[in-house]
């Protein structure tokens, strides 16, 4: 799947990626009202990773429902919309409006983990009670399957995950970018206009993998796993940890052909584990002491 954010709002990617070959696309998070996002610069590269602070710039849920989602009806893969907000009601109203597109949408992702907005976002995602309350309101507003996207920057991700699932989330999306800071030494200034940003890319893969494994072990819920997936081996590792779908985000910025390459190489990568299908390897991390 294409992770929320780097796949854009859904249409600009069409010349570059054959969506019909992929599992799905998670659209960039939308809010009830349009948002202008954060000041430039919004991106900074580090070793094996990227910091970004776009700040949920988006045209608003109405524009998505009116102009974008109807044009994705024939794209040939699952279309998942992502929602964010500053209040529980905003989340619920977004979900309600998106339900108009339930013929096209496969699910809604609830983004309670954006590190780059002043209100909402990660503020919700770090508190199990707040997550529970948001998910419950969204659950009441729509019949679509819900995936709650969580942050790893919490003391106990399993308790947040459990709260989301008990409140009606059908599954989990793990993980969002990690709050981070990069500094220009000479100028003694932050590299990003928003001061802090979200770290993504291979640098966060082990963190994401640990989150997927812990949440799968504790809940057994369906998980869209991602964080630094660059190739098919990464994808299979996430599946072993417990992800039944894998999302690709930062890699799109490097090369939009990577998702298709992963799909093509997946059978070989799975075969090397001795399994024959994705369902045979999901959540099969072996903890026994034998070598083979």
């Amino acid at each position: 799947m294409l992770a929320s954010g780097t796949a854009g709002i859904g249409l600009d990617i069409l010349p570059f990626v054959d969506l019909s070959k992929l599992g799905g696309i998670i659209l960039k998070s939308v809010t009830l009202e349009p948002r202008a996002g954060n000041p430039a610069p919004r991106i900074w590269e580090i070793s094996c990773g990227v910091l970004n602070a776009v700040g949920l710039e988006n045209p608003g849920v109405d524009a998505l429902v009116r102009d974008v989602i109807p044009r994705l009806g024939s794209c040939g893969c699952a279309v998942i919309a992502s929602i964010a907000g500053q209040t529980e009601d905003e989340y619920a109203r977004c979900a309600e409006k998106l339900t108009e597109c339930s013929a096209i949408l496969a699910a809604i992702e609830i983004n309670v983990s954006c590190p780059n907005v002043k209100r909402g976002g990660i503020e919700f995602g770090s508190d199990p009670d707040a997550v529970s309350s948001v998910v419950r309101k969204v659950r009441a507003a729509t019949g679509l399957p819900l995936f709650t996207k969580l942050s790893a920057a919490v003391s106990d991700i399993v308790s947040v995950a459990s709260a989301a699932l008990e409140s009606g989330s059908s599954g989990l999306a793990l993980i969002n970018t990690l709050p981070a800071l990069a500094i220009d030494r000479v100028r003694r200034k932050p590299r990003l206009g928003n001061v802090t940003g979200g770290l993504s890319g291979p640098a966060i893969k082990p963190v994401a993998m640990r989150c997927v494994w812990e949440c799968f072990k504790a809940t057994g819920a369906p998980i869209i796993g991602g964080g630094g997936v660059m190739n098919a081996s990464d994808a299979v590792e996430f599946m072993i940890a417990g992800a039944s779908a894998v999302s690709v985000g930062t890699a799109i910025m490097r090369d939009a052909r990577i998702p298709l390459r992963i799909v093509e190489e997946l059978p070989r990568m799975i075969a090397e584990t001795g399994a024959t299908s994705v369902s045979e390897i999901v959540g099969t991390l072996r903890l026994d002491s034998t070598d083979s």
Binding site: A7, G8, D12, F16, A40, R42, I43, N52
Partner: peptide, 22 residues
């Protein structure tokens, strides 16, 4: 010019504030 991510209009990283809109 601007610090750029995808280069193809997807990620929103190179956005600058214009006179009327981003």
């Amino acid at each position: 010019t601007s610090r750029m991510g995808c280069g193809i209009g997807l990620c929103g990283c190179c956005v600058v504030k214009g006179a009327k809109k981003n």
